[in-house]
């Protein structure tokens, strides 16, 4: 398969006032790849994915999505973004939320209905479609939020901590879905601080203190450091001797 770069970052830096949150990040995500950004909270993962999603702008370096320099309005319809907060309208039902976001992406009529059915099926919420979101549990909100990100069949899926608060059984089925999406050509960029999830990614970027300290497949990273687990590998790259 041709290695097509969906996301490309060149020396990307981001500072807020005097604080440098990200330093010289260079990385890429290929088509059909699940790329995991692994790092502790506060490492700059969210800032990084926001710049790729086009809602934040790099203070230095360039972000390219499908070879277009971000932020660019035309690219928003090709990206599915799920933020760390659920970002749902609590007063509305799940269906009303889905309909609203679907129309923002230009879906209508039977196509909209069909997509809503499909994504609710993926996240296992089909029977709660007509329920008001405020009655949802934390995990259900997270799943609905994920469903919204999948609605418009984006070429690039950016998921910020997608499986927080979701039980292990469902988490496994969601990861299966990620695998399927990636096989059909979607590039998936997922952030996590859960090490066992990192193992399921095709490739990993380890990020710490605003710096990308290592990239590679989970296997390669483990081999390179002679570690048994991703966690040990992370500690190794972080300069901590395990």
């Amino acid at each position: 398969m041709a290695m097509e770069q969906c996301v490309r970052l060149e020396n990307v830096g981001r500072r807020f006032g005097n604080t440098e949150v990200l330093k010289e990040i260079t990385m890429s995500v290929q088509r059909s790849e699940i790329f995991g950004l692994l790092g502790p909270s506060g490492a700059g993962k969210t800032t990084l994915v926001k710049m790729i999603a086009g809602i934040d702008t790099a203070t230095s370096g360039q972000v390219y999505v499908l070879d277009q320099k971000m932020p660019k309005l035309g690219m928003f319809s090709k990206i599915g973004y799920m933020a760390q907060s659920d970002a749902l309208y609590m007063e509305l039902t799940a269906q009303e939320n889905l309909q609203f976001f679907a129309s923002l992406y230009g879906l209508r009529g039977s196509k909209m209905r069909q997509r809503i059915e499909a994504v609710m099926d993926i996240v296992g919420l089909s029977s709660f479609l007509k329920k008001q979101v405020s009655t949802y549990s934390g995990g259900m909100k997270r799943r609905l939020s994920l469903a919204i990100a999948l609605l418009h069949e984006p070429e690039i899926l950016i998921l910020d901590e997608p499986t927080v608060g979701i039980d292990p059984v469902l988490r496994q089925s969601i990861w299966k879905e990620f695998e399927q999406l990636s096989q059909s050509g979607t590039a998936i960029l997922v952030t996590t601080h859960v090490m066992d999830e990192a193992d399921k990614c095709h490739r990993l970027g380890m990020i710490r203190g605003g710096k990308l300290i290592a990239t590679g497949t989970p296997e390669a990273l483990k081999q390179e450091t002679g570690s048994e687990t991703i966690e040990q590998a992370f500690l190794h790259f972080g300069g901590v001797q395990a």
Partner: peptide, 14 residues
Amino acid sequence: TGGTLERLLASPLR
């Protein structure tokens, strides 16, 4: 504060 504005801004909405 609920994050929905961010979600709107991540969509093609101007």
